[in-house]
């Protein structure tokens, strides 16, 4: 018996990963290029990272993006979770199918259309476009994603647990806080992270909803790239990749540690 992957599997794996990660690896490599010319290797250097610290515009954009991401992800998580609860627990109220369809629709709606619609709304309401309109727009965009993630968890959650809590004297609200929420929390957190990431890299909707003084990082990067790719941009992107990768690694380690802890307890 042969052990391990076959040649065919090995090749398809290599090609697949190359397809996914070659562009990223290239980008990271070029960010350490000493030369200003993007396609000419001039030796290893970290000077573009140092240069970043003095690029005030880029730093401002990063700060805006972070604030928009944190705020919109949090609001979207609260609203999305509430929507998911209404869908999963509200019973078969009138218009249930319509409501659930409408919750899912933004997932497949072209972002350009959503951005344009939001822009029209902000103009009609005479909102000054800036930080708050971007945050609002991102909340609208990501709310559906949170609702979908939390809803799929809620429908597999044993309803008897909530009933048991109420039976033992907890009000419906308390039963939710002390029994349902702790059990669906991983899904809520996953929804938050999804919302945060979506907000972090959104360019289309931000372009429509943003105004002076509220340029997000993707907008900044995009506008700079139009003038030519600089090693500085490569460096920014590498930092973004590092942040996301670190988050994912910490998350999976925490999950692994949790299940290992449970297994240890079971053996004890």
């Amino acid at each position: 018996m042969r052990r391990g992957p076959s040649w065919f599997n090995l090749v398809s794996l290599t090609v697949g990963f190359a397809f996914l990660y070659l562009p990223i690896v290239l980008l990271v490599a070029w960010s350490f290029n000493a030369s200003r010319l993007v396609t000419v290797w001039g030796g290893f250097s970290t000077k573009w990272y140092v240069a970043l610290l003095s690029d005030q515009q880029l730093l401002d954009a990063a700060w805006v993006t972070l604030r928009v991401g944190l705020l919109s992800a949090t609001v979207a998580t609260v609203l999305g979770t509430l929507a998911a609860i209404a869908l999963a627990r509200g019973g078969r109220f009138r218009g249930h199918t319509l409501f659930s369809g409408m919750i899912y629709a933004p997932l497949v709606m072209p972002e350009v259309i959503m951005g344009l619609a939001l822009l029209l709304l902000f103009v009609a309401l005479r909102f000054d476009r800036g930080f708050w309109t971007v945050t609002l727009a991102h909340t609208t965009l990501t709310l559906s994603y949170v609702a979908v993630v939390v809803h799929s968890r809620l429908i597999t959650f044993d309803r008897a647990l909530e009933e048991a809590a109420q039976d033992l004297g907890a009000t419906p609200a308390r039963a939710f806080m002390s029994v349902t929420l702790p059990n669906i929390f991983p899904a809520v957190l996953a929804g938050w992270m999804l919302a945060f990431t979506l907000s972090l890299d959104d360019l289309v909707i931000a372009s429509f909803a943003s105004g002076p003084g509220a340029t997000t990082l993707p907008m900044r990067i995009y506008s700079q790239v139009r003038l030519g790719v600089t090693p500085e941009i490569n460096a920014v992107c590498t930092i973004l990749i590092a942040i996301v990768a670190t988050g994912v690694i910490i998350w999976s380690l925490a999950m692994k540690w949790r299940s290992a802890g449970a297994a240890r307890q079971a053996l004890a």
């Binding site: 008897a160 647990l161 009933e163 048991a164 109420q166 039976d167 033992l168 009000t171 419906p172 039963a175």
Partner: peptide
């Protein structure tokens, strides 16, 4: 409501 009734229930799934 259920939380104000002086009866308690043992659920089939144990819950």
């Amino acid at each position: 409501p259920p939380h104000r009734r002086p009866v308690n229930m043992m659920f089939q799934s144990y819950a």
